[in-house]
Amino acid sequence: MYQRQSGHHLCETHFIEDIQRRVANTIKTRRMIVPEDRVAVALSGGKDSTALLLLLWQLLPTGQDIRLIAITIDEGISGYRDDTIRSAEQLTSRLGIEHHCISFTDLFGDTLDTFLKGRETQACSICGILRKKALVIAAQRAGATKLATGHNLDDEAQSVLMNVFRGDLPRLCRNSGVDSSGKFIPRIKPLSLISEKEIAVYLMLQNEWNELPECPYTRYALRREIRALLSGFEYKHPGTMLHLIESKKKIERYCAGSVLPASLGSCTMCGDPCSGDLCQVCLLRQTFGH
């Protein structure tokens, strides 16, 4: 029997069914996946993306012509990424899912480790910008119509709090719904209402729990501090994470059209949609001298 934040006790079977039902509900109510979709799952091989791929594989109805594919980005982080990539490869071959792997070296000319020499404290923001771009390219090459990521409730709540702490109003107001502007492959987060702990328990019950190394750059991350702080609050005051996410949605509604520029321009170097002259990737390329 397992205990959730709700105080309910569920047996193993009902715990798994409860997670499946809630994820299916998120997908349905937000129209994340529709018939004919080709869904690319960003599979790092870590716990969240492993749970996401497994859940989508369990939940997606066959016969509606929905295809699942997995894409893995090799950032080039020594002592970390090899283990998770191996785990990703094993999972996709076991489930029989098409798997594409793409590396920072292929796309940007070098490994993340090299780009970060002397800039370690900016690791997560630099990696985040490059990884986002790499995922979009990989998803486009694979002919995907949706890009699914394993962001969970904890991640989403941490992001809200981080944007508040940084005073990053534009990011706090950005619409988190499925993008339908046609400019981007719509990104979906089917696990956004499932907590990190629930994901860990789910994987354990499915015999899919792997103890993998943690990214060596997390020690520089503000997110690490926010994570500890927020899980302390969530423990003492259950519901804190959900409340943060609800606040963000309210802020989004109030700010619609007033903080963000109404229309996006294009990057003068690569043509990608962006708000300034250069997109963040091209700005980084300039910094690196590539």
């Binding site: 716990k47 990521t149 860990a200 993998l212 190394p213």
Partner: peptide
């Protein structure tokens, strides 16, 4: 006691 590592 198994720590849940961050990372997805």
């Amino acid at each position: 006691i198994i720590r849940i590592a961050h990372g997805g």
